[in-house]
Nucleic acid binder design. Structure first.
Length: 782
DNA sequence: TAACACTTGTTTTTT
DNA sequence: ACAAGTGTTA
C-alpha cells in the first residue's frame, strides 16, 4: 500500500530530472520508499546528496512536507539541507519540513505535550554547565566527599543512564549498577541522580538527555500521543545514524513501527561519539531491528583523491568491527599523504603555517581551502600563534561558544527566570548579579525553606512570610526589590517583544550600569558581547515577525539558543580564513588541504581511550574521519616534545601512523625524516615517561614535591657520534645515505647539524635523534 | 558581604 | 598556563 497521492509535477524539476543527477547506488537508495532502509555511506560518497534528493523526491511524489521527519546531527546540517531542498522544490515546501536535530525536534514536541508528563511548556533547558552546577550543589548538600564525587564524572554517569533510558527509580533498583558504583567508591550515585532529577523537575527544567528520555516516557505512557506523531511522520529520515544512542534509536523505532517507512544513513567507520552514549550497534544491528531492511551501499568517493581514499582504507582495515564496504575514488591519484615530524609543538606550528603560506602561493589556493584538525581544543593555541606570526587569517571553531560566556549566561539567566521563574539555576545565578547585597547566607536560607516546603526558590521569594524565612528587614527589603524587578519583567514580557524586553532587562537590572562603569579591556569586550546578544535577539524577533509568529518569542529564543553550538553560528566574511577545529567538529565537512596535527601517543589516541580496545578503535575511526576530510592533500604532523599542563613532555609518534600502508605516504621530513616508528629512541622515551609518572605519583603524597622536569629533552645524552660530529664530516645516515655536514648549530639545548646529502639533498638533523655514523672527513673542517 | 589571594584540577571529543 | 573554586581579610 502506498501512502502517496498520484504524482504531480509541481516544481520546476520533476522526479525523473532529480534522479538523473545521481549514480546508480544513490538513485536506488532514493527511490526505495516502501520499507525500512539502511544507507551505508562511505566517506565523501554523497550521503547528504542522497538525503536531500530523497526528501525532494518524496515531496515530488506528493507527500506533504509536514509529514516528513528528518533528523540531523547538528543544526547547521539541518539548515544547509533545508536550503538545498529549497533550491530543488521551492522555499515554501522546504520550510514546513520537520527537520532538525533530535534535541531541537523533540524539545518542540515536548513543549506541545508538556502537561502529559507533568511539565509546563515553558520549561528551560539546562546546558552541561548548568547541570554540573546543580550536581555540585547536591553533592555539597549531601555532605559527600567532593574528591570522590566530581560533578563532571557524576553527570557523565547520569547522562549515560538517561541515554540508556534508565530512570532514577530503575537505577536505584538495579543491583548490577549499584554494585558497580560501590566498586567505584561512589555508592551514593543513585541518590544524587534521584535528587538531581527531582530538582530539575521542580524547577520545570530539563537537561539535554532529558529531552530524549522524556520523549520516550511520553511515547511509552501516552499511546494516543505516540499514535498522533506516528500518523504525522509518514516518512522518517535519520542522518549520521552511527552516532545515535539507545534513547534516540528507540524514538525512531517507535515512530516508524507501524509504517516502517524509515531511512537511516550513516557510516559505521565514522562512529566517533560513544563517549556521549552513541551506540555503534544501532547501525550494525539496524537490519535485525527492522524486518526486511533494504541495505544500500554508497562506495564511490567523490571527494578525495585516490591516494587519500586508499590510505584511509588501509587505516580503517585495522579495526575489527565493521560493515564491509569497498570505498573507491575515480578522481586523480593525487599526492601522497605527507608525514612531518617536528622537534616540538612550537615547530609543528611553524611547519604547518609555512606550508600553508607556500601552498597558497604555489597552488593558488585560498586560505579558506585549508583546515587544521586536532584532537583537543587546547592544541589550537600554538597554531593561532604561528598563523598570526605569518599574517595568515584563521577562524577557530569550538572551545567556549558564545552562549557559554559568563556575561551572556548571566543575561540569559534573566530571560530564563522571566520565562520560567522556577528555574533554580537561573535564580541562583542572578539573585546577586549585579551585586545587590544578597549573599550566600541568604540564598542558603531561601534554598532550605524551599526544600522544606517542596517549592521552588522563586515561590519562597514571592511570599517569604508564608515559608517562615528568617531574615532581617534590610535583607527582606533587598529580596522584595529583586522580586518586584523580575515580576515587572514578567509583566512586560506579555506587552513587548523579546528584543524590547531584553533592552529593558539590561537597563533596569543594573547590568547596563555595571557595564558602563567597567572600562577595562575585558569589561569592554563583555559589553560588546552583550550588545551582540541583543543584535541576535533583534534579528530573531524580526525573522519571527516576518513569519507571522508573534507569540512565545522569548521561550522560543531560549530554546533555540540552548541547543545551539558554536558550529552552528556561521559568520559572514569568514570564508577567506584557515579553519581550526577538533576532528569531532570536522565531521561532515571537507577541505582541499587538511592538516592533521598532534599525531602522538596519549594525544591521538588519547590516553583515556587507550585502555580499551573499543576506545582505541574509536580513536582510529576518528583518525579516519580526519583524513577523509581532505579533497586534495593531507598532511599529518607530530611533535617529539609537547607543552601540556604547564610542562614540556616528550612525545612519541602515534601508533596509528603505522596503520596506514606506507605506499600512500611520503615521509619527507626536514628533521631527518624520522617518523618515530618504534625504535630505540621510542623505547627510551617510553621508559623516561614511565619513570616520570611514577615520580609524579609519589609526589602527591610527599610534601616536598618533585619539580617536574622542565625540558626533559635536554637530558637525553647525545651519542658519542653526535658529540664528535663536526663541520666537514662525511656521514652515513640510516635513511638518507651519505652526506657532508655543512654547519652545526646550537638551538638552545639542541644540537642540530645541517647536512648536504648526495641523494636526499639538504637536511637538518637533530643530533639527539639522528641515526648515523661518521665515515670520514672531507678535510675542509675548521 | 565583597574583594582578594590562594589552591586546585584540568585536557577527549559535544547535542 | 589557566580558569574556576575556596578561603581569608576588611
Amino acid at each position: 500500500m502506498s501512502i502517496f497521492v498520484p504524482m504531480q509535477k509541481t516544481g520546476k524539476e520533476s522526479a525523473s530530472v532529480l534522479l538523473d543527477q545521481l549514480n546508480d547506488a544513490q538513485r536506488a537508495a532514493v527511490e526505495f520508499c516502501d520499507g525500512p532502509s539502511l544507507v551505508i555511506a562511505g566517506a565523501g560518497s554523497g550521503k547528504t546528496r542522497v538525503l536531500t534528493y530523497k526528501i525532494a523526491y518524496l515531496l515530488e511524489q506528493g507527500l506533504p512536507p509536514f509529514y516528513i521527519l528528518a533528523l540531523t546531527f547538528t543544526n547547521k546540517a539541518a539548515r544547509e539541507m533545508k536550503s538545498r531542498i529549497a533550491e530543488l522544490v521551492g522555499e515554501k515546501r522546504a520550510r514546513s519540513l520537520w527537520m532538525g536535530t533530535f534535541h531541537a525536534i523533540f524539545s518542540r514536541i515536548l513543549r506541545n505535550e508538556a502537561e502529559a508528563i507533568g511539565f509546563r511548556s515553558n520549561f528551560t533547558i539546562f546546558d552541561s554547565s548548568d547541570s554540573n552546577n546543580l550536581i555540585r550543589l547536591i553533592i555539597k548538600e549531601m555532605n559527600l566527599d567532593d574528591k570522590l564525587y566530581r560533578p563532571g564524572p557524576v553527570h557523565g554517569q547520569i547522562s549515560r543512564a538517561k541515554n540508556s533510558l534508565i530512570t532514577p527509580a530503575m537505577y536505584a533498583a538495579n543491583e548490577e549498577i549499584l554494585q558497580y558504583d560501590r566498586m567505584a567508591k561512589r555508592p551514593h550515585l543513585f541518590e544524587i541522580y534521584q535528587r538531581y532529577q527531582n530538582r530539575l523537575r521542580s524547577g520545570n527544567s530539563m537537561d539535554f538527555d532529558d529531552l530524549l528520555m522524556y520523549t520516550n516516557i511520553l511515547f511509552r505512557d501516552h499511546a494516543e500521543i505516540l499514535e498522533k506523531y506516528r500518523n504525522q511522520f509518514q516518512y522518517i529520515l535519520v542522518d549520521e545514524y552511527q552516532d545515535t544512542n539507545f534513547a534516540q534509536h528507540l524514538i525512531v523505532k517507535q515512530l516508524a513501527d507501524i509504517h516502517h517507512r524509515v531511512c537511516v544513513v550513516g557510516d559505521d567507520a565514522q562512529s566517533i561519539y560513544s563517549f556521549r552514549g552513541a551506540n555503534i550497534d544501532n547501525i550494525l544491528k539496524f537490519k535485525s531491528n527492522f524486518n526486511e531492511t533494504q541495505i544500500f551501499k554508497l562506495e564511490q568517493n567523490y571527494r578525495s583523491t585516490q591516494n587519500i581514499v586508499n590510505a584511509a582504507n588501509s587505516l580503517i582495515k585495522k579495526n575489527s568491527e565493521q560493515i564491509f564496504k569497498d570505498v573507491f575514488s575515480e578522481n586523480e591519484p593525487g599526492e601522497k599523504i605527507e608525514i612531518r615530524g617536528a622537534f616540538s609543538d612550537f615547530e609543528e606550528g611553524l611547519i604547518v603555517s609555512n606550508k600553508i603560506a607556500r601552498m597558497r602561493m604555489e597552488e593558488h589556493a585560498s586560505y579558506g581551502d585549508f583546515a587544521i584538525l586536532y584532537r583537543t581544543n587546547a592544541q589550537s593555541r600554538i597554531f593561532e600563534e604561528s598563523l598570526r606570526k605569518n599574517n595568515i587569517p584563521y577562524r577557530i571553531y569550538g572551545g567556549l561558544s558564545f552562549y557559554q560566556r559568563k556575561e551572556i549566561k548571566d543575561v540569559i539567566s534573566y530571560f530564563r527566570l522571566i520565562v520560567n521563574p522556577d528555574d533554580e539555576e537561573a535564580f541562583r545565578r542572578i539573585i546577586n548579579y549585579p551585586t545587590r547585597g544578597i549573599g550566600d547566607v541568604t540564598v542558603g536560607k531561601i534554598s532550605a525553606a524551599a526544600a522544606l516546603h517542596q517549592v521552588s526558590l522563586w515561590q519562597v521569594l514571592e511570599s517569604p512570610l508564608t515559608y517562615n524565612l528568617d531574615i532581617n528587614t534590610g535583607t527582606a527589603r533587598k529580596l522584595a526589590d529583586f522580586q518586584s524587578l523580575i515580576a515587572d519583567f514578567i509583566d512586560k514580557n506579555s506587552q513587548m517583544n523579546a528584543f524590547e524586553l531584553a533592552q529593558e532587562v539590561i537597563r533596569n537590572s543594573g547590568i547596563a550600569k555595571e557595564a558602563y562603569e567597567d572600562m577595562t579591556p575585558e569589561g569592554m569586550s563583555r559589553t560588546q558581547n552583550i550588545q551582540e546578544l541583543l543584535n541576535a535577539m533583534n534579528e530573531f524577533v524580526a525573522t519571527r515577525q516576518e513569519q507571522g509568529e508573534e507569540n512565545n518569542q522569548l521561550v522560543d529564543f531560549l530554546s533555540e539558543v540552548s541547543l545551539l553550538t558554536d558550529q552552528d553560528t556561521d559568520k559572514e566574511g569568514e570564508n577567506e580564513k584557515v579553519t581550526l577545529m577538533t576532528v569531532h567538529s570536522a565531521k561532515g565537512l571537507e577541505f582541499d588541504h587538511v592538516f592533521v596535527v598532534g599525531m602522538e601517543e596519549d594525544l591521538f589516541p588519547s590516553a583515556m581511550a587507550k585502555s580499551e580496545m573499543r576506545g582505541l578503535e574509536e580513536e582510529r575511526r576518528l583518525f579516519y574521519v580526519a583524513i577523509t576530510r581532505a579533497k586534495k592533500t593531507c598532511t599529518i604532523t607530530h611533535a617529539r616534545s609537547r607543552f601540556r599542563n604547564g610542562v614540556t613532555n616528550p612525545a612519541v609518534a602515534s601508533r596509528f601512523l603505522k596503520d596506514i600502508d606506507p605506499k600512500f605516504l611520503s615521509t619527507d621530513s626536514q628533521l631527518g625524516g624520522e617518523i618515530s616508528y618504534p625504535s630505540q629512541a621510542d623505547d627510551f622515551w617510553g621508559s623516561m615517561r614511565a619513570e616520570r609518572l611514577q615520580k609524579q605519583e609519589r609526589s602527591i603524597s610527599s610534601p616536598n614535591r618533585v619539580t617536574p622536569v622542565q625540558r626533559t629533552t635536554s637530558t637525553l645524552p647525545l651519542s658519542k657520534e653526535a658529540k664528535e660530529l663536526e663541520v666537514g664530516h662525511l656521514i652515513e645516515h640510516e635513511r638518507f645515505g651519505r652526506g657532508v655536514v655543512t654547519s652545526i648549530e646550537m638551538g638552545g639545548n639542541d644540537r642540530r647539524a645541517f647536512v648536504e646529502f648526495e641523494s636526499a639533498g639538504k637536511k637538518q638533523l637533530l643530533l639527539k635523534f639522528a641515526k648515523f655514523t661518521i665515515i670520514g672527513s672531507t678535510g675542509n673542517n675548521r
